[in-house]
């Protein structure tokens, strides 16, 4: 792994099921993540993905690529355009720093509205990475 390396992109179909399953698995019962009618009353066109699911997907993107021995140290994300049902989020990543066996990877998740998430993951590469 070198600074500047790009990770292969990961496409996540943003289904209603993913949004609801992610919200419930993260114990987030805010209505905007499962009830379209109440989401619309709050000015949103539909339900949208909660931040914990986005966080989980960003973590998965890194460990999918680096393997089970990679250890996540830090995940820092900022949300932008919401992930609404029917969209696709494409995660991309670039290695921005490397210090011994610890890498810093810049991650972006883009959907058709723009950048859903931008963030930085610090990860310790395990054996074999």
């Amino acid at each position: 792994m070198n600074v500047g390396d790009a990770l292969p992109p990961l496409e996540i179909p943003v289904t209603r099921t993913l949004i609801v399953a992610g919200a419930i698995a993260s114990r987030d019962y805010q209505d905007v993540h499962h009830d379209a009618e109440l989401a619309r009353e709050k000015g949103s066109p539909d339900i949208f993905m909660n931040i914990l699911t986005t966080n989980g997907l960003v973590g998965r993107y890194i460990t999918d690529h680096l393997g089970p021995h990679a250890v996540l140290r830090k995940v820092a994300i900022r949300l932008g355009a919401p992930n609404y049902p029917g969209d696709t989020m494409t995660l991309t990543g670039t290695v921005t720093a490397l210090d011994g066996d610890t890498a810093e990877i810049q991650v972006t998740g883009a959907n058709r509205l723009g950048h859903h998430v931008t963030g930085t993951v610090t990860v310790t590469l395990g054996a074999g990475a």
Binding site: L52, N55, V71, K74, V75, A76, L79
Partner: peptide, 15 residues
Amino acid sequence: TSVVATDCEQEYLRP
């Protein structure tokens, strides 16, 4: 009255 999460920064010290 509405709320939306915008940022999450986590550091993991032990599993």
